[in-house]
Design a protein around this nucleic acid. Structure first.
Length: 504
RNA sequence: GGCGCCAUGGUGUAAUUGGUUAACACGCCGCCCUCUCAAGGCGGAGAGUUCGGGUUCGAUCCCCGAUGGCGCUACCA
C-alpha cells in the first residue's frame, strides 16, 4: 500500500443487488458530505463479488440514483482514477496476490474443514454457552501437509486472528474493542477460490488508501476482523464511522415491508432530491445548536461534521420528509416543477405526452400547477388534487351526503336558480370579475351569504363544497375547455347545465 | 446461547461537553385569515432525559448494573 495521503479519502461501496435503499443513500450522502467538507475524495466502488446476486442493470441504477441525489464521485466507474478498476469482480487478480502473500507469511492458513464439521462445532459452542468461533483445527497444520493436501482437497483460506484484543476508533462511537476469543478466524477465500466480502472490502479500502470508512453499523461486528487483516499486512487501519440504522415506525429495520424505500421510488413519487438529501442529512445528524432544519446541499457541506452524527437508530418519518418536500416544491423553479409534474398527469390520462402537447396546453398547465401544488406532499398526488378540473360528475356530487344536505336547503335552491339565470343570459366566456358580479347579485337577490352563497355554486361547478379559489379556478376551466386534451375540460356553462340537467 | 452497538416528548434532533423554567423542527390541538379546502400567520398541549445504583455541592451529560431495541454470530454482502 502506498503511504497514506494527507487528503481524506472515503468511499461508498454498494453491492449491485437491488435498488439503492434510503439507508444506503444516507450512507452515501454522509460520505459525500464528509469528503466535500474536508476537500477530500469521494470514491464509488462496486462490490460485486456475489456473482449470483449482482447485476449490471442494478449498477447502472445505483449510479443514476446517486447522480439524481447530486452525489458525484471523484473516482469510480465512469470516471476511473488512479486505483482502477473500481469493480471488485475486475480485481480478483489483486486479491489472489495478497492471499498468496498472507499464506506465505503464515498470517493465513488453509482450512480443510467440511461444512458438517463446522456446523457441529457451532452447535457445540452454543450448547456450551460459548461464542461461536472456529476451533482452529487446521490452524496448526504443518506447512508441508497443508501444501500437499491442497493439491487434492478443496480448501478455504482463513486469517489467523491474533490473541490480543482487536480495537478500533470510531468517530461516532469512540473506541470499540472486541476480545480476541470472541472473534473467529475469518474465511478470506472460499473453497471455490472466490474471496469473501469482508476480505476484499478491507483489501480495497487499504489499496485505495481510504482514510475514513463511513458505513452502516451492521458492520461493527465485522470490523475487528478487518482490523486484523490490516494488521496482518502491516497496514494502518483507517478511522471508522458507523452510522446507525434507519428504522420503520415499528422500530424495525426499514425495509420494503414499510413501503417505498428505494431512492428510485421516491423520485417516481415526486419527492425532490433536495428534499430527500435535506431529510436524510437530518436523520442522524444535527447542526450545532440544532435550531435549523432547512439546508441546501452547499450548507450541508459547510456544516457537516462526522463528530456530530448520532449513534442511536432513527425512525424514518414520512411526515417530516413531506414537510421538507412541500417546502422545496414551493421554493423550486416553477418551470422545473412543471416538467416534473407533467408526466403524472399523463399517467392519469389527463394530459398528452409532453412532446406532443401544444404550447397553449403548456401555458395553461402553469397556473393549474400553481393552484394545486401547495396542496400536495409529493408530485404524484397532483392529478388527484386537480381531478376536479378534468372530470365532473354531477350525479356523484349530488349523491355525496354533505353535498345533499347543503343542496336540500331552500336557500341553496334559490341561490342556484339565481346563479343559473345569470350564467344563461351570458353565453360568452366567464371571467372572474363577471363571476364576482354575479355572486354579488345573487347575494343581494337571495340574501344568502358566506357558505350559504358559495357552497351550492361550488358543488354545482366542481362537485365539492370545498376547493380552490374561484378567481383562479374559473379561468382554468374556461381556458381548459378550449384545449384539446385526452380528457375534455368542461367550462362553467357546461358544468352548470350538466349539473342542473341531471336534477331534472 | 455468545459478542457488540444504542437509549432526551409520538418522531428527528439541541442543550457553553456536570450548573438550562430541558430548546428547535415535524406531527397534533386551537385561533386568525377565508365561501370552503389547502397555503400562510399566531398560540398551546406534550419529555424531567428507560429503570436502579454510584461519583459529585450538583447529573440528560461520567461509572456500574438491569431492562428494552437493534446488529453480527455463513465458505451472504
Amino acid at each position: 500500500m502506498a503511504v497514506s495521503s494527507s487528503v481524506p479519502r472515503v468511499r461508498f461501496a454498494p453491492s449491485p443487488t437491488g435498488f439503492l435503499h434510503v439507508g444506503n443513500a444516507r450512507t452515501a450522502l454522509y460520505n459525500w458530505l464528509f469528503a466535500r467538507h474536508s476537500g477530500g475524495v469521494f470514491l464509488l466502488r462496486i462490490e460485486d463479488t456475489d456473482i449470483d446476486r449482482s447485476e449490471a442493470r442494478h449498477e447502472l441504477q445505483l449510479m443514476e440514483d446517486l447522480q439524481w441525489l447530486g452525489l458525484d464521485w471523484d473516482e469510480g466507474p465512469g470516471v476511473e482514477g488512479p486505483h482502477a478498476p473500481y469493480r471488485q469482480s475486475e480485481r480478483l487478480g489483486i486479491y489472489r496476490e495478497h492471499t498468496d502473500r498472507l499464506l506465505g507469511e503464515g498470517k493465513a492458513y488453509r482450512c480443510f474443514c467440511t461444512p458438517e464439521q463446522l456446523e457441529a462445532e457451532r452447535q457445540e459452542a452454543t450448547a456450551a454457552h460459548r461464542p461461536q468461533v472456529y476451533s482452529g483445527r487446521c490452524r496448526a497444520l504443518p506447512v508441508a501437509e497443508s501444501a500437499a493436501r491442497a493439491t487434492i482437497e478443496p480448501f478455504a483460506v482463513r486469517l489467523r486472528i491474533p490473541d490480543h484484543p482487536l480495537r478500533f476508533h470510531d468517530l461516532v462511537r469512540g473506541t470499540v474493542e472486541f476480545p480476541s476469543e470472541t472473534v473467529s478466524d475469518p474465511i478470506l477465500v472460499r473453497s471455490s477460490g472466490m474471496p469473501v466480502y469482508n476480505y476484499v472490502v478491507t483489501l480495497d479500502d487499504a489499496l485505495m488508501e481510504i482514510t475514513h470508512v463511513i458505513r452502516g453499523d451492521d458492520h461493527i461486528s465485522n470490523t475487528p476482523k478487518q482490523v486484523a487483516i490490516y494488521e496482518a499486512f502491516g497496514w494502518k487501519p483507517p478511522e471508522f464511522a458507523h452510522l446507525s440504522t434507519i428504522l420503520g415506525g415499528d422500530r424495525e429495520r426499514l425495509s420494503k415491508r414499510h413501503g417505498a424505500t428505494s431512492v428510485a421510488s421516491f423520485r417516481e413519487m415526486g419527492i425532490l432530491p433536495e428534499a430527500l438529501v435535506n431529510y436524510l442529512a437530518l436523520l442522524g445528524w444535527g447542526a450545532e445548536g440544532g435550531m435549523r432544519e432547512i439546508f441546501s446541499a452547499e450548507e450541508l457541506v459547510r456544516e457537516f461534521r462526522l463528530e456530530r452524527v448520532t449513534a442511536s437508530p432513527a425512525v424514518f418519518d414520512w411526515e417530516k420528509l413531506h414537510w421538507l418536500n412541500r417546502h422545496y416544491l414551493k421554493a423550486a423553479d416553477p418551470e422545473r416543477i412543471a416538467e416534473l409534474a407533467w408526466p403524472h398527469f399523463v399517467i392519469a390520462g389527463f394530459l398528452p405526452a409532453a412532446e406532443t402537447a401544444s404550447t397553449a396546453a403548456k401555458d395553461w398547465f402553469d397556473p393549474l400547477l400553481a393552484l394545486f401544488l401547495p396542496a400536495v406532499n409529493q408530485l404524484d398526488e397532483l392529478p388527484v388534487k386537480a381531478g376536479l378540473v378534468f372530470h365532473f360528475d354531477p350525479a356523484a356530487a349530488r349523491a355525496d351526503q354533505e353535498n345533499a344536505a347543503i343542496l336540500a336547503t331552500e336557500s341553496a335552491q334559490e341561490v342556484l336558480a339565481a346563479f343559473a339565470s345569470r350564467v344563461r343570459t351570458n353565453a360568452g366566456t366567464v371571467t372572474p370579475p363577471q363571476f364576482k358580479t354575479w355572486m354579488n347579485e345573487v347575494k343581494s337577490e337571495t340574501g344568502a351569504k358566506g357558505k350559504d352563497l358559495f357552497h351550492p355554486v361550488r358543488i354545482a361547478l366542481t362537485g365539492s363544497h370545498s376547493g380552490p379559489e374561484f378567481d383562479k379556478l374559473i379561468p382554468l376551466l374556461e381556458d381548459g375547455s378550449r384545449l384539446t386534451l385526452p380528457v375534455r375540460v368542461l367550462n362553467v356553462h357546461e358544468r352548470l347545465e350538466q349539473f342542473l340537467g341531471g336534477a331534472r
